[in-house]
Amino acid sequence: MNIDFANLTKAYKEREEEYLSVTQEVMSSARYILGKETEELESSLAQFTGTKHALGVSSGTDALLLAMMALGIRGGDEIITTPFTFIATAETIACLGAKPVFVDINETTFNIDASQIESAITERTKAIMPVSLYGQMADMDEINAIGTKHNLAVIEDAAQSFGATYKGKRSCAASTIGCTSFFPAKPLGCFGDGGAIFTDDHELYEKMKAMRVHGQVKRYTHKYIGMGGRLDNLQSAILNVKMRYYEQDIARRQQIAEQYSEKLAKVVKTPEVLQDRTSVWAQYTIRVSEREKIQGALREKGIPTAVHYPIPMHLQECFDYLGYKKGDFPVSEQCAAEVMSLPMNPYVTKEEIEYITTNLKELVE
């Protein structure tokens, strides 16, 4: 058996006629950048999350950049975040000349440990950027309380958690600004790069809306320094189709995660979703020892796996200048050495789950 990790081809085939119809309409209209498809998407994204405003942008990375630019983040500022994440989180902070300040993670959720945030705050701190990793939101009440106490913005990096909930609130609707990604392999993915920004703050919304078009408030009139951060209509049209089925896709991911957990609970350390929240299962990530050996053996059986993420940010060469060293964030380092993601998408079958879990049991028992 050969298993597809993301099943992007199957995802396309399931709704092929709808995708071809909407993309043909965009192409024949010759309206490729912004327009009614993007406006429709922004309206449905805002309604889905419960936020007042949503903006389609060119990628999840650009969403983070635009959020920080709108907040006035600049050289010398500090932003507190997690070292256990994809590089875009810390990279975008550094791109603006600001300093990523890392705080270790909670071993249960893999998200930033809110109890350690306050001790990392200095007079230069301007924002907190929690990451809702693997599909589950961070401890947003505690983080927002710290932000309010110290007059700090909170930017949720929700690249992996769009659609998840925390105490009844949707991801992207639980902080000053929420940012997500529509990279093809995300739970809600387009057919290229794309992302979105969410906020209830009308002033921030208007500022980010201008900034995604080079700070332009009317043609050739630029109020802000901005960027080319627009979402194109082809991607918006595709996402409009996907939004019609997204609740269904989340439910399918949940069912697959439950099957994995039932079969693996006594075999490996399985992911835990806290009672006050839900996950969209961007990844189904277990923890194992002798990971490379297990990955190799599974690969020989046609079972793909992935590691999200093998090297924490504080140990990446590009962040040597920050002065961190091995041992500074022991939980992140331990998790980075043990995490392994199994195939997770709405199309994983019961037979595939049985095959994956049976082979994994044989390797670890």
Rank of each mutant, 00 (worst) to 15 (best):
N2F: 14
T122N: 04
G97H: 02
H202G: 12
I33N: 00
Y321V: 05
K350R: 15
T108N: 00
V268P: 03
G135T: 04
L96G: 04
Y32F: 14
T285E: 09
Y321R: 13
N240F: 03
G194N: 06
E317N: 14
T305M: 10
P187L: 08
T270C: 06
R230W: 13
V339C: 07
T176W: 03
P184K: 07
K13F: 14
G228W: 14
H53E: 04
Q47W: 04
A63G: 15
E317R: 15
F329H: 02
Y134G: 09
G296H: 09
Q248R: 09
D141R: 00
A336W: 01
L64P: 11
S332M: 11
E39N: 15
S279V: 03
L152T: 05
R277H: 02
E351F: 11
E300R: 10
V154F: 05
S29G: 07
V101M: 03
V280Y: 00
N2P: 11
S175F: 07
V57P: 05
Q275T: 14
A196W: 11
Q160Y: 11
S28P: 08
T165W: 01
L360Y: 08
G195R: 07
Q275A: 14
A306W: 07
G147T: 08
S119G: 09
S43W: 12
S43E: 14
G215M: 01
A127F: 08
C172D: 05
A210G: 02
E156I: 05
L66G: 07
L322H: 02
L360R: 01
H214N: 13
V217S: 03
K126G: 00
V103K: 00
M137W: 01
A88K: 10
Y32K: 08
G168N: 01
S171Y: 00
I225W: 00
S119P: 01
A46I: 00
P100Y: 09
K13G: 10
I87Q: 12
T305N: 10
Q235A: 05
A67D: 04
D320P: 12
D328H: 05
E247L: 15
A210W: 07
